[in-house]
Design a protein around this nucleic acid. Structure first.
Lengths: 142, 142
DNA sequence: AATCGACGGTCAATGAGATTGACCATCCCC
DNA sequence: GGGGATGGTCAATCTCATTGACCGTCGATT
């Protein structure tokens, strides 16, 4: 049996990355932004804003999950919910002025982390990793 | 910017694997055994039992985390805590008769999942994956 | 032998990442 | 204009893990 099982390895790699991202964010002065918040900053339309459901779809989490994240971001003043004139059911999540700045930093932090990881592993291994992960995450029926 | 960020991919791969393992376990009649419980079954000495701290070390989680897992397993009657004659502070976690059976099934399930994954990815990509993950996770015990 | 730091186990609180189920209002197609 | 799909929300829960604080025992050093 191979040492740590694959699941464990996956989890540890995830945590390692998350904690490194958190460190990066803090260095950029984003001390109240969690890794999970990046899901919004990475996927929201900077100018026009994006609907919560659409955000959830892009980030690949449930809409309820996205709710929580948006709630927190709204409390912190980084986004606000505006009603959508085109659809009375819908609300558009929009970045505030502060939010726009933070979004930029956040995107840079994520980008920088991926770049560093890619450099550390080497292009070939990095690509192979993404590829293998996508396979496991997506194409594992029973 | 690459599609889902690496962290997301890691998380999704982990969940996919975990849920598949859960399915396997259930098929084997282990419907009250979670993926996390495998940490014990995979690392405990079948005959002599193992100390909680040692289990935690092997599974690479905190001793408090291992406490919870052992608590649950004890409630379910799969392990029991016996005091260690060699050290009055210590307790030895031992498999019960039922626990031994479950441990066997559990090891098989994990083994089978890894084998299937390895087959699905191919040896080279599987090895590359483990290697890259270990790198990211920062395999050194600090 | 007494001391004192390290270790083993426990309790309590918390965090981060998610989920499912249930609801209601609105939308849009037929 | 009915009725199923969609958008948002509330509430409850799950899993994997953490840190901090404590207490009793161990054992190496005086």
């Amino acid at each position: 049996m191979s040492e740590p099982d694959l699941g464990r390895l996956l989890l540890e790699a995830h945590r390692a990355l998350a904690s490194e991202l958190a460190g990066d964010m803090e260095e950029r002065g984003l001390n109240d932004v969690r890794a999970g918040h990046a899901a919004v900053f990475l996927h929201i339309d900077r100018r026009s804003g994006t609907r919560l459901t659409e955000l959830a779809r892009r980030a690949r989490i449930s809409k309820q999950g996205m709710m929580l994240v948006v709630d927190e971001l709204e409390t912190r003043g980084y986004v606000r919910r505006a009603s959508d004139p085109a659809d009375a059911r819908a609300k558009v999540v929009k970045l505030t002025a502060r939010g726009r700045t933070v979004a930029t930093e956040c995107r840079r932090a994520v980008q920088s982390l991926e770049t560093r990881t890619k450099r550390a592993l080497g292009d070939r291994r990095y690509d192979g990793l993404r590829d293998a992960l996508a396979d496991i995450a997506g194409e594992d029926p029973e």
